[in-house]
Computed example of a mutant assay.
Amino acid sequence: MKKTNVWVLFCSLLLSSVLLVSCDDDDEDADALMEQDRQRVAVFFQNAAVSDMFEIQTGQMAQVKGETSDVETLGAMLVRDHTLSSNKIMDMADERDIQLQMTMPAPKQQIMTRLNGLDGLPFDKDFAAVQVQAHQEAIALYEQADKEIKDAEVQAFIDETLPKLRTHLQHARDTKTKVDGM
C-alpha cells in the first residue's frame, strides 16, 4: 500500500512540476507577444504621427496658398481632423511610454518645399495630387496596423480614424478632378 502512495505522490509532483514549467512558458510567450504588439504600436504611432504632421502642414499651406475654395476647404478639413488624430496619438504614446520622433522624412520635406514654391492653380493641382497619394499611403498604414495590432485602445482609434481618412481621400480625389479640369 505504501508503494502505491509513494508512486501516486511521485507522479503528482512530477505532473505539478511539468504544469509549472508549462505555465512559466505560457507567461513568457504572453510577455513576448505583448512586447511584439508594443513594438508594432510604436512603429504605427511613429508613422501615423509623421503622416498627421505632413497633412497638418500641407493643409495650412492650402488655406493660405490655395486659389480655389475646394483646396482651401480640403486644407481646413485636413488641419482640423489630423490635429485631433495627432493629439490622440501623442496621448496614447505617452500612456505607453513610447517616444515619437517628430522629424519630417526627406521625401515629405521635398514635397513641402515644392508646394511652398507654387502659387495659384499650379499649387492647387499639385496639392490635390499630393493629398490623393498621401491618403492612399495613410489608409494602407492604418489597414496594415488594423491587421497586426492587438491593443484594444489602438484598435478603437484605428477603427475611428480609417473612415475619416477614406473621406479625406474622396475629397482629395474630387478636388483633384475639379482643379485638373481648370
Rank of each mutant, 00 (worst) to 15 (best):
K2H: 08
T4M: 13
T4P: 03
N5E: 13
L15P: 03
L15E: 03
L20N: 08
C23F: 13
C23Y: 14
D24Y: 11
D25S: 09
D26K: 11
E28C: 04
E28Y: 09
D31I: 09
A32H: 07
A32Y: 10
A32D: 11
L33K: 13
M34A: 13
R38N: 07
R40Q: 12
R40H: 08
R40I: 08
A42W: 04
V43I: 12
A48Y: 06
S51I: 02
S51V: 05
S51Q: 12
D52W: 02
I56E: 04
T58P: 00
G59Y: 03
A62K: 08
T68K: 13
D70K: 09
E72S: 12
L74F: 05
L74D: 05
G75D: 11
H82N: 06
L84S: 15
S85I: 07
D97N: 14
P107A: 11
K108V: 09
Q109T: 09
Q110K: 15
Q110L: 08
Q110A: 15
I111A: 13
T113C: 01
T113P: 00
R114D: 15
G120I: 07
G120M: 12
D126I: 10
F127W: 02
V130K: 05
A134S: 02
H135N: 13
Q136D: 10
E137W: 04
E137G: 00
I139P: 03
A140H: 00
Y142L: 12
Y142T: 11
E143L: 08
A145C: 05
D146G: 06
E148I: 00
D151R: 03
D151W: 04
A152I: 10
E153M: 14
T161N: 06
H171N: 12
T175I: 07
T177I: 10
T177K: 15
K178C: 07
V179F: 10
V179H: 04
M182E: 13
M182S: 14
